[in-house]
Design a protein around this nucleic acid. Sequence first.
RNA 1: GCUGAGGUAGCCUAGUCCGGCAAGGCGCCAGCCUUGAAAGCUGGUGGCGGCGACGCCGCGGGAGUUCAAAUCUCCCCCUCAGCGCCA
Length: 431
Amino acid sequence: MIDVDLLRKEPAKVKENLERRRNPAYLELFEKARARDAEWRACLGEADALRKRRNELSRQIADARSQGRSVAEIEAEAKRIPDSLHEVAAREASLKQEADLLLRRLPNLLDVTVPYGKDDTENVVVATWGEPEKGAPQLKSHSELLEALGLAEFDRAHRVSGAGFYYLKGPVVLLDLALQRFALDLLVERGFTPVEPPFMLRRGPYEDVTDLADFENVMYKIDQEDLYLIATSEHPLAALYRGEILDEDRLPIRLAGVSMNFRREIGGHGVDQKGIFRVHQFSKVEQFIFSRPEESPRLHEELRANAEEVFRRLEIPYRVVNVCTGDVGTVAAKKYDVEAWFPRQQAYREVVSCSNCTDYQARRLRIRMGKAGKPGKVVPHTLNSTAVATSRALAAILEQYQQPDGSLTVPKVLRPYLGGRTTISAPSGPN
RNA sequence: GCUGAGGUAGCCUAGUCCGGCAAGGCGCCAGCCUUGAAAGCUGGUGGCGGCGACGCCGCGGGAGUUCAAAUCUCCCCCUCAGCGCCA
């Protein structure tokens, strides 16, 4: 949620910024939000005037009573107030609610360094690393390789849970855990505190950390409970200090979330036919930071550098794109994607999403900065970035490290986590 | 799931029975005092609206009764403790 003060005092700036997102719906929303806010303030004035008169008369009645004077006349006027106040107050409350809802639906203001563009085809490459291999169409797809090596059961998973689910088996499970541990160790070394968060959140907190459309398209709802399965540990990590005042001397707070993530993926691209690239559940190590506002651009680069380091150490070629104005999500002010090279597909595909949410998420969560005993008004910034999503990283590894004989070489940096194992090949016996 | 106790400002607490401007402490800020500091003393310390004087709101949430609700009535939510169940 953006600061309502900006809407009132610098509407031209806000409008100009919203225009960059290239979605006319936002401009409509902006006008409506402004108008409703003005109506609300006018109505609030009316209600306050009535309340003021009521309070005056109430006090007069109390005073008169205590002095034994008659209250009949004052009471006659006082009795007329509740009816009109009731009507005005109801209108005021409903205008307030409408104005709030409109304000909450407005996206974050974009950072000036976000490139102007209409959709993901106009994202700007800002870095590349490694040598993408050209001409490797003879490779197996990651799902074919998983099945050939006896490392996954897709058909059986689809039968019992539906499309978008999988069984992983054997050494690839250890490889998955190795990836998580490798990423986590790297982050701990860099000052992050590992956190295993709740995998479910209540609706209230959840509405504060993401936009409403996600409830329709992304999150799984638990039947009979006010609980949603998390789509990413970013969400419970952001909600960790909901309604609290953060000691500004302790910022930045660096957290490394470790969780399974659940996504319905309704609409959009849906789930992939087979494999683990786009699925309903996956493990992820997530970076999350609460920061002072002035530090967030620097920390955004730090998150990006950490994510790049993960893929550099895995020796997977990648590039980084600065996501353009038409493609940045609602909550982020700026976003980088890291895209790994998939040699069989001959394409870069998204493996990391790294966002600076500025004060948008924290304001919704009613988080402020300050010192003990001295709450401030400043809203801290929140940032998040994938360190490694194992589904995507495994898919990249399965293509990148595939050998001509059909075996899979284990990335060097993961070998210590697998007892020094260097290769995964097809099992000789039945499994 | 059952029973009980709770939810009041950044934090801790009183007020609730019996309706009448939310009291006190801690912390924090400022001033006085002091060579400096501490202590002490004085004042301030939430949200919203208003250019402002100022006003309104705020006691978990909502509805009701009333001129007037932290306080009375009804509904709901949450937390903690004990018990039950459980990897």
